[in-house]
Design a protein around this nucleic acid. Sequence first.
DNA 1: GACTAGTGCGCCCTTATCGTA
DNA 2: CTACGATAAGGGCGCACTAGT
Lengths: 320, 320
Amino acid sequence: MTMADLATLAKVSKITVSRALRDSALVRKEVRDQIHHLARSHGYRLNVAARSLRTRRAHSITAVIEMDPSEERPMSEPLALMIIGGLLQVLTMRGYSLALTTQTQALNSTLHDSDGVILLGQGENDEATGRVSRFNLPMVVWGRIQPASENVVFVGSDNFEGGRLVGEHLVALGRRRILFLGDITHSEVADRFSGLSGAISASGAITRQLACAFSREAGRAAVAAEIERGEPFDAIAACSDLVALGAMDALEAAKIIVPRQVAVAGYDDTARESRLTSVRQDWDRAGRLLADKMLSLLAGERPASEKLPVELIVRGSTQG
Amino acid sequence: MTMADLATLAKVSKITVSRALRDSALVRKEVRDQIHHLARSHGYRLNVAARSLRTRRAHSITAVIEMDPSEERPMSEPLALMIIGGLLQVLTMRGYSLALTTQTQALNSTLHDSDGVILLGQGENDEATGRVSRFNLPMVVWGRIQPASENVVFVGSDNFEGGRLVGEHLVALGRRRILFLGDITHSEVADRFSGLSGAISASGAITRQLACAFSREAGRAAVAAEIERGEPFDAIAACSDLVALGAMDALEAAKIIVPRQVAVAGYDDTARESRLTSVRQDWDRAGRLLADKMLSLLAGERPASEKLPVELIVRGSTQG
DNA sequence: GACTAGTGCGCCCTTATCGTA
DNA sequence: CTACGATAAGGGCGCACTAGT
C-alpha cells in the first residue's frame, strides 16, 4: 500500500495524496479528509526511508548517553532515563524518532543517520563534546553551559545556584566549617563547588574540598579519612545523594550525630526515600527543553543556551 | 559523495562499489581494498535511507520501555538502562541502530520504521505484549516466558528459581513463618512467589503473601500493618530491594532486630550498597541475549525462548 | 493577469536481477 | 565459472507547469 495506490483509490495524483497527508493548504479540505480517511481505513503507512531519501532528513535524533561500565555510578543512571522521557514526549509528537547510543558506540558506528545529536553528559574535562562534535551534526549538550557555536547549544541546570542554595542553607543553620565532597574535574561539579564556597565565604565560614568519586563507598572513605585526620567540621555538602549517603555511613560509624553535630546535604535528589536534604531539578522539563532546542536548530534557527532553575529540598539531614 | 562518485574515482561501476563495500566475494580483493580505501579517504558515508528503501529493511530495532510516570518505581528504572547497554553492544556491532520509545508513545506513533520490537517489561497481566504485537513485527519480550508464536520470542530470568533460592536459604536458616511482599498480578512476581512457597512448604514452614506495590513506602506500610496485626513471622521475602528496604524501616521502627528476629531478603540486587540479601541477574547478558534472539528472528530462524540463571547474594540482612 | 487546485516528470541513492566477456 | 556492468526498481517529494476560475 503506497501513495500511488491511495492516489488510484482517490482518483487523484500521488503528489496530491502526499500533500493531503501533510495537511497542505494546496489541497481542498474535502479532498484532504477523504484521503486521510482512505489512508486510515486501508492501513497505509508512510515509507520513512523513501521520504528520507528524497528530503535528506532522517526525522531521527540520536541521544548519546554516558554509560561507561567501568564507572560505578549506579544512582546517576536513572537521571538519563528521566531526561529521555522528556525527549520522547516532544520528539514523538513532532514526528521524530529517538535513537540511543553510548559514547563509545557512537564513535565507532556511523552514528547511523540522524538529523542531530543530543549529548547527555560531557564527561570529565568536557572531552565528550569535542569527540562528538566531529560528526558535524546539529548538537545539543546537556551539562555545563559553554559558549555556543553555530550548530551547538548547551542546556544545563544551574549548578552554581544549586551550590549557592546549599551553602546559604548551611550558613543559615549556623554551620562554619563545611566539607565539599566531589570531583571538580567534572565541570558541573566544579560549578556547584563555586556556588557553595561563594555563599559560604561571604559569611566568613570556611569550605574544604575533598576529591571523591561518584559512589557511596567513595563518600564513606573520604569522610572516614577526614574524621581520622581530626580536623573539625560541622557540615558536609556532597556532589550527589549517593556520596552523601556514604558520608552518613562514616559519620554513623564514628557515632557522630546527623544533623546535630554534622549536617549533610546531597545533590540531585535521587534518594527521595531517605531523609537527605538535596537539590532537585525538573528532569522531565530538561528533556523537553533539550528536544525543543534541537528542533529549533533543525528549523534553521539559532536558539540560545539555557540554564534551568533548581530547588532546594530541606529534610532531616540538615534540619531536624 | 555517493557511490556513483566513488565509482567514477575507482573507474568501476556503482554496483561494484556497492558490492566491494559489503565485502562481496564477487569483487576481486585488490579492487575491494582500493574502494574501501577511497571511501575512507573521501569520507564517504552510506546513505541508509536509500539502502532501506531498496532492501525494505530499516536496520533498526525499537526498544519499548515501561515508563509510566504515575508509577513510582524509581529503583526499577536503572534495570532498563542496564539491559539497553547489552542491546547496544550487539546491535551496533551488527550494524543496527536502537530506537527507543515508551509504551504509550509506541502506540501513537507509527513505531517509525523498525525491523523489530524489543519489549522490556510486560506490565501487569501481560497486557503490553498484546498491545504491541498488533504491529505485527518480529518481537522479543523481556519478562515471563510464554508460549512463543511464529514471530514472538520470550527471554526472562528464572524467577521461579530466584524465589526458590530465597526460600531454601531462609529455611536453611531455620525460619518457619515467612512473609512474601509483592503484587502477584505481575506475572514475574507471581513466579517468584511460586518458587518461594514451593521451597518453603516442602520443609513444613509456612508462607503468607501480602499484596504490595513496588515502592519503599508500600513495603513499610505492609509490614507495619502486619506487625500491628500481631501474627508472628520470622522472615520476609520481598519482590524488590526497594520494598525490602521499606520492610526494614518498619521493623526498625518496631524495634525488631534484623536478622536475629526477622531475616529480610530483597530481589534484583539494586541496593548493592546496603546489607540486603538479594537475587542478582546478569543484565548485560540479558540485553545481549535479547538482541541475539531478535537478529535470529530477522534472519528467518525460529530461536527458542530462554530463561536466564539467577544468583543468590547473601548479606547481613539474613545471615550475620 | 492573478489565483487556486491540481498534474507529470524526474530525482534522491542503493541494490537485485539479469546479462556479458 | 569468475568478475564485472547495464538497467530497473523502491516510495515519496520538488519543480515546473497547466486547467479552470
